[in-house]
Design a binder for these strands. Sequence first.
RNA 1: GGGCCUAUAGCUCAGACGGUUAGAGCACCACACUGAUAAUGUGGGGGUCAGAGGUUCAAGUCCUCUUAGGCCCA
Length: 1099
Amino acid sequence: MQTNPGDRSPMTYPKVTTDPTAGPAAEHRAVPSSPRFPRIEEGVLAYWAEDDTFRASVEQRDPGANGENEFVFYDGPPFANGLPHYGHLLTGYVKDIVPRYQTMRGKRVERRFGWDTHGLPAELEAMRLNGIKTTDEIVEMGIDKFNDACRASVLKYTGEWRDYVTRQARWVDFDNDYRTMNPEFMESVLWAFKGLFDKGLVYQGFRVLPYCWNDETPLSNHELRMDDDVYQMRQDPAVTVGFEITGANERAGDLVGAKLLIWTTTPWTLPSNLAVMVGSEIDYVVVDHEGDRLVLAEARLAAYARELGDEPTVTWRGTGADLLGLTYAPPFSYFAGQENAFRVVAADEAVTTTDGSGLVHSAGAFGEVDKEVTDREGIEPVMPVGKDGRFTHPVTEYAGMLVFDANPHIIDDLKARTGAVTPGTVLFRRETYDHSYPHCWRCREPLIYKGVSSWFVEVTAIKQRMAELNQEIRWVPEHIKDGQFGKWVDNARDWSITRNRFWGSPVPVWKSDDEAYPRIDVYGSFEEIERDFGRLPLNAQGQPDLHRPWIDDLTRPNPDDPTGKSTMRRVSDVLDVWFDSGSMSFGQVHYPFENAEWFEQHFPADFIVEYIGQTRGWFYTLHILATALFDRPAFSSCISHGIVLGSDGNKMSKSLRNYPDVSEVFDRDGADAMRWFLMASPILRGGNLVVTEPGIRDAVRQVMIPLWNTWYFFALYANAENYEASVGRAESLGSTDPLDRYLLAKTRQYVEKLTAEMDAYAIADACETTRSFLDVLTNWYVRRSRERFWEGRPEAFETLAAVLDIVCRVVAPLLPLTTEEIWRGLTGGRSVHLADWPDVSALPADARLVGAMDEVREVCSTTSALRKAARLRNRLPLAGLTVVVDDPAALEPFAAIVADELNVKSVRLVAAGSDEAAGHGVEQKLTVNARAAGPRLGKDVQLAIKGSKSGDWSVAADGTVTAGGLALVEGEYSLETHVGGGGDPADGPVTSRTGMLPSGGFVVLDTVVTPELAEEGVARDLVRAVQQARRDADFQVTDRIELTIAGSAPVLAAARAHESLIAGETLATSYTVAEEAPVGATEVVVGDGDKAAIAVGLA
RNA sequence: GGGCCUAUAGCUCAGACGGUUAGAGCACCACACUGAUAAUGUGGGGGUCAGAGGUUCAAGUCCUCUUAGGCCCA
């Protein structure tokens, strides 16, 4: 540093800072030109922690009467079985941005963190830690001890979560969090269950569900679609078995003794066979085979050519309908005599002829369709498989075997006709079959379909209403409403809500243990429980606790049993965790036991956000319970974002290391950079996102650095002038300078657009709008205004300060840490997040001004291209530029800006269509409108097009247009004014170049370089060289210097002729033009290769 | 296994109704500009529009098939 504090005024900006690198004391503080954003962020975070800014931001907003000034946000509870990943961070950023925005708009936005704590993942973790594998071992260990282990495991990562969430600058209340395992929350869950029960929407059933025999639990539909690995290829034995027909029907004639050929990939279900299903409209045949008559679908004959030959003898033809009612001998004798069983039944929805034999065996309890069919046919399903997936009584031959392990034994017995195989049953073919098969998302074991007892919410009864209420929800992106979510609701099935497990909210149902005296009691509160049982469920510490085993301890005599012998006992199931999270809206406030009035006012929530998969998870369960209990939607706006992918486009995977480490990104690029990267991406429009390090750094480069540099620029010159801007007062918006006026008008447009986008939850759009505004601010306004700041013009400081203030405030939700540091440095205020969203009605609304400036920028870029083409460097001044546009008057205020930007001595604005405009080599160009001419001319249109391009076209005196020898009619062509290039060298020296403007006008650049202009160009080069030398010498921008210039004759001439320009621009108080290069001079090349030497020193 | 979607520059994607030189951003190269900028401006290279057939005066766009990838459902 060359500064000497003694002879400088104390710096004004930054007024306050938390950046430890900015200097310890006020007089040494400076805005760093190349900030370390992560270090600044840590400073801001520490400041927030100390200042308690978050609490203040919530509490400074009045909730209003009945909380009508509150914006209600529901935080979807994560299950914290590991550290947060990008998906959590992404959702967290949105969960931060919307509440910050609404707070600035004046709303009170409470934000409570929530934890999803119950469920199988916690149980599995507890089992792993205790080295146990089965539910029997859990009971042996003691449910109380086991649940304590579950409780400990779900709280394990909460500290890390808090650290990550805090570091990402998400404001949320952790101290006042809700947990689904807290007694208050669970009491609300019980209330919800009872509410559904009382409305008749809960029933106990026997349903075939995907079932994990390893975890000993049925899985819900959501769990079956939990991830891509659920369905994996698996090889199973497939068998074709013949069942002997024992009873005829009228339509098929006498088929007794023939065999129904069925095909299955689950041989283990054959002992439980109860029926054979056919398609009533499918064609079937009976063919002879080695003395047997076999029934199968005609379309499947070819598939069995190996056994049957290419042209088997067909002795009967008919449809499935003809086969209905035939009876047969079951393949195994275990359930012989089962009522209504062992018949051919119709199941058109289930039977196809794409594989197998066209006949399907049905084991009611082991397939969803099977169950539907046996229910329809009045056949009681049988269940010879235990909860561990092993055979039980009466299937004694295979008892104790896992069903998959029993497959080969069953096949062997069928082949050998041993065991319980009935006479007449034949194994016709065995093969292996590769198919996509569901596996447990937790333990990855293959699932089976199995009938289990479960409680259900009758979603099918309310799905019509759910669909109606869905129409009231605003979805972002919009297509989710009638797409993924709407379709899911339309196809909703009843929701199995109970699990035969341990760690969860209890099913609050007590049943009589004697069927002779049936009774069911359902409880919806502690109070009701205490009333009937005389006490509350108490845990080992004596606290009220609804968890098992304490709740199971509550029993009482059955009031309906006059003998007094039977007892009311709780059903042992616990509720599905999705029932917990679906209860979050009321559970988090302990409704209806507390906050009833508040809840009524704040349901539905204004806003929720989660990833798209929650259309089947949390969004869905919230919607079910809201519809069933309140006949309202649970949320009015919902963002559902896409999935975060690793840098290789695949799912993020720890083992593949295909994504940047979260902590490293925080440390290197910062939380705001990651926030911007995620928020500006297509992921909020429903697309997926590939996380890459260059992408994150791009956010820094495109947005954070430009914003910061604008602030640095302001601070630099305001400090140099010791100028303090009056941010927030009306006079700060009063500048009459055209550029200032333009910026203020542009800012107004920007804020209006941004506000509309934020209101519509279009966060990615808001990022894009901001990015393009920052481009205008930094690469146009600041660049074009440098001189005025250099001159210390107050209105420039006022304008830039006012705009920086506004920009910081509106960008605050999108870059909360960076804007905080800038805004506080600019204003000295407590926090930008305590500020109000800016009211821009005081800013000029001037569309013509903004439009004119857009045209000015077009003029500049078109002319730059002309310079480039003519190889005329920008520092070489040119005599003049003529601009031909429709509305020259609108550009008039900016003529000086154009001249300065393009380094031309004069800018002439000419109206299009004037005589002068016509003199600039304007040509006409014919374009054939193929769309119009094509249908009339047919093939010939190609000739006309060719002619228009080659120049073979003309306009006759009467206006008739001919192209390629074909006359065109009005509308089939367009004649446009077109400006050619620089002219033909054969016509003499080129003196100008012409360029078209995208908006329709054109510019003509005078390209004649006179000796005077060349000399001034050299002088400008010298200025630039001196500036570079100053910078290389580490001088401050305000330092005065001693300057010596030497060099060739043209250099000396230019240096003498333009002394005042050079000395003035470079702050040289001593200026020497020398024949000989001084010692230590820097050699540079200027002009057209002239050598110069310059020496600088502090004055 | 069934249904839906996608395939365009090295990368990410635009390309209403078919209309004749297929665009943008990023990346790359050159030049320019630089008293805030790690920025910025101008120009350039880079495409058999997945492949094959077809309809049409005209196909990236419509039709058929093939291939590859994705999503949803079983």
